[in-house]
Write a protein that binds this DNA or RNA. Structure first.
Lengths: 218, 218, 218, 218
DNA sequence: CATGAATGAGCATTCATTCAT
DNA sequence: TATGAATGAATGCTCATTCAT
C-alpha cells in the first residue's frame, strides 16, 4: 500500500490546533449570541447591554469586541440568524402542500409557530429592529428567503385557480401578514392572550380570509 | 475643537425656572404631565428622562418626585391619558352608527386612525408598556372605556342579528383586534408599509371578516 | 435708637444658610478648577480626565457635572480665568509707562513673566486650546482685555513718534507676539532653555526690534 | 437606527493581511514606520494608535511589538525621521549661500517652510514630544544634524565679519530660534495667522534682527 | 412645597499590552 | 516570526434616586 504522503507532524499539529481553536472560537461566538438572546429576553431590548452579555458568558466586555464589531453587529447577527431560521421554517411548511389556500394556511401557522417558539428572535426581527429587515450588509452571509414574495405568489395562484376571491394579490398578502403579525405581537407584548386564545383568533381570522377552507394543520 | 462650552445643567435649570411662575400650585401636576407627554412624543420611550421633564417645566428633578412616585408612575399617567383619549375616540366612532357591522368598521377605522395619529402613544400603550394596559394603579383617575368589551358586544349583536356568521364573539373580537394591531404595529415599526398600503390591507382584511359590508367611512 | 426693622429670624437664617451654601459652592467650584489645573500640569492635556479631577477633589465624577457642563466647559473656564489674569497683568504693566517703546518692553516682559509663572494657563490658552481664544461664549463673564490691540496701538504710537522705524504696525505687533510666544513656548515645552537663557534671548531679540532702547525693567 | 453593522476588528484585520505578502521580511520595520507616519499625519498625535498602525500594515498589533518596544518607541522613530528630514532641509538651505547673514535668512525661511509643510511633524518634534529632541535612544540610526549649532556658528561668523552687531552668538541664535518657533507655533495652533501674515511677521522680525539685509529668497 | 448636593450604577467603546502557542 | 485570545484600565457622560434642609 503506497504510503500516502503526509504533512509533517508539526504541520498536522498546527492544523489540528487551528481547527480546534476555530471550533472554540465559534463556540464562544455562539455562546455570546445565546447569552445575548437570553438577556434580551430577560431585560428587554432597552435593558440589554454588552457588559451584561460579557458577564453572562464570563468574559470581559472587551472580549466581546473580538467577536462582534459593536453592539449593533451582535444584535444584527442574532436577528440574521432569526431571519434564516424563520425563512427555512416558512419555506418547509409551504413546500409541504401544493394547494394555494392550504399553503397559505400552512404558512400562517408556521409564522405563528415561529413567533411562539422564538419570541426573542421575532421581537428583534419584526418589532424592535425591523430596520434590519431591509438592511443590506456587505458581508451578507446566507441568502434570506423572501417570505412575503412567496405569500404573494401563492395568493396570486389561489386567485388564478378561483380559490380566492379576485383582487390585488399584494394587498391580500399584506393582510395576511398583518393578521399574523398582529397575533404574534399581541402574544409577545404579554397582553392577556393565552396561546389557545391566540390560536383561536388566528384560525377564525384566517378562516374568514381564506373563505372557509379548513386549516391544513391542527 | 471649538465647541461653544455649555452651561452646567444647574444653570440651565435655573434659567428655565424663570418661566415657571405662571403655573399655579395644583396645576403643576398637570404641567409635569404635559411636559412629559410632549417630551415623550419628541424623544420616544428610550430618550425620555425625568431630568428633561424637570428642565422642561422649570423645576428640579427632585420636585417631580413630590408629584409622582417614580419615573414609571409618570410614564403610566402618560399611557393612561392615551388610554382615555383612545377610548373616547373609539367610543365616539362607535356611537355614530347603529348597525353592528358598520359599527365594527367604524371602530376599526378609528383604531387605525388613532395609531396613525399618535404613534408614540400607541407604541407605549400597546407595544412597549402593554403591562400598563391592565395595571390598576391607585391614582387611576378616570374610568377607562373598555374597548374590547364594546367590540365583543357589537360582534355578539351582529351575530344575533344574523349579520355575522355565528361563532364565538370573543374570538371574533380578538381577531379584529389582531388585524388592527397588526397593521398599526407594522406601520409603527417602520416596515415598508405606506399609509395607503396599510389602509388597503386593512379594508381588505376587515372586508373579508365582515363579509363584504362596505366600510362606513371612505 | 430706632429699632431697625429686621427680617424674621427664620428668613435671616435661610439667607445666611443660602449665602453659606453659595460660598461653599463657589469653593468647590474653585477646588475643581484648581485640581484640574494641577492634574493638567501633571499629566498634560492628553492625560487629563474628569474622573481624575473628581478623585482629586474627593467627589464622584457625576458631581463635577453639577458644576461644569462637561469637560470642555471646565477647560474653558480655566482658560478663561487665565485670559482675565493675563489681560490684567499686561494692562497693569502697560499702564505703568507712557513712552511707547518702553511700554512695549514692559508688555513683553509682562507677557513672559505670565507664561513663566503660569505655565499651565499659558499652555492651555495659547498652545493646546487656542480655539478658546476667539470662542464667543454666551455667558461671557468679564470682558477680556485685547492685548494684541494694545500692542498694535502702542506700536503705532511709537511709529508716529518716530521711535520705531515706520512700517505696518500690525505686522510689527505680530512679530513681537511671535517673539514672546516663541520664547514662552520653548520654555514650556521643556526644551533646554533655562530661565536665564530665555531671558537673555528675549532681551536680545526685543532689543533688536525696539532699536536699542533699554528695557524698562531689570 | 439602520446602521450598517461593521465587521469585528479581527475580520477587518484578516482582510488587511491579504495585502501584506508584498513586504519582504526586513522591510516590515520600515513598512510599520511608514504606516505609522501616515496615520500620524492623518489622525494627529492623539488619534494615533498602535492598533490602527497594525491594521494598516496588515499585521497583528502583537507583531508591532516584535519591532518596536512600545508605542513610544515607534513614535520616537517617527519623530526621528522628522528630525533627519528637518536637518537635511536646513542644511541644504544653509549650504546654498555663503554670506552669514544671507545664510541665516535662508535657514529661517527653511525652518518656517518645514513647519508649514509638515505641521504634524513639527508639532510632534517641537511641541508635543520635545523630550524626543535630546533623547538618545539605542536604536538611533542616523546622526542628526545639529541645526542650532549651525546657526550659532553662522551667527559667530557674521559677528566676526562685522555683519552682525557683536554680542553673544549663542543668545542671538536662541533669539532666532525663538522667532521662528513662535511663528511656526502660532500658525500650528490655528491662531488667526494666515500664511501671509505669518510670513510678513517673520520677514519683519528677522529683518530687524539681521539689520535690514534683504531675505535671500522671495 | 421645593431645592441643592450628591451619589452609585450604568453605558459603549478604545487602548496598550501580555502570554501562551 | 507571528498570531490569537484575552485583559484591565480608562474615558466622557447620563440617569434615577435619595436626603437633609
Amino acid at each position: 500500500m503506497p504510503r500516502t504522503p503526509r504533512e509533517p507532524r508539526e504541520t498536522r499539529l498546527r492544523q489540528g490546533s487551528r481547527q480546534r481553536r476555530e471550533h472554540e472560537k465559534q463556540e464562544l461566538r455562539q455562546a455570546i449570541r445565546d447569552a445575548a438572546a437570553t438577556l434580551f429576553e430577560t431585560h428587554g431590548y432597552e435593558g440589554f447591554s454588552l457588559r451584561q452579555v460579557a458577564e453572562e458568558v464570563g468574559y470581559t466586555p472587551t472580549t466581546i469586541y473580538l467577536y462582534f464589531a459593536d453592539k449593533d453587529a451582535l444584535l444584527f447577527e442574532i436577528a440574521d440568524e432569526g431571519f434564516v431560521r424563520f425563512g427555512e421554517q416558512i419555506h418547509t411548511a409551504a413546500a409541504a402542500v401544493s394547494n394555494p389556500v392550504e399553503r397559505l394556511w400552512a404558512i400562517g401557522h408556521a409564522y405563528l409557530a415561529f413567533a411562539e417558539q422564538n419570541p426573542v428572535y421575532y421581537q428583534l426581527m419584526f418589532m424592535q429592529r425591523s430596520d434590519f429587515l431591509l438592511a443590506k450588509r456587505e458581508g451578507e452571509r446566507r441568502p434570506r428567503i423572501d417570505v412575503l414574495g412567496i405569500v404573494r405568489e401563492t395568493v396570486q395562484a389561489g386567485m388564478d385557480d378561483g380559490l380566492i376571491r379576485p383582487g390585488d394579490a399584494a394587498t391580500f398578502a399584506d393582510g395576511l401578514w398583518a393578521v399574523c403579525h398582529g397575533i404574534a405581537a399581541l402574544r409577545i407584548s404579554k397582553l392577556p392572550f393565552t396561546a389557545e386564545r391566540a390560536s383561536a383568533a388566528a384560525d377564525m381570522t384566517l378562516g374568514a380570509m381564506l373563505a372557509g377552507m379548513r386549516p391544513a394543520t391542527g
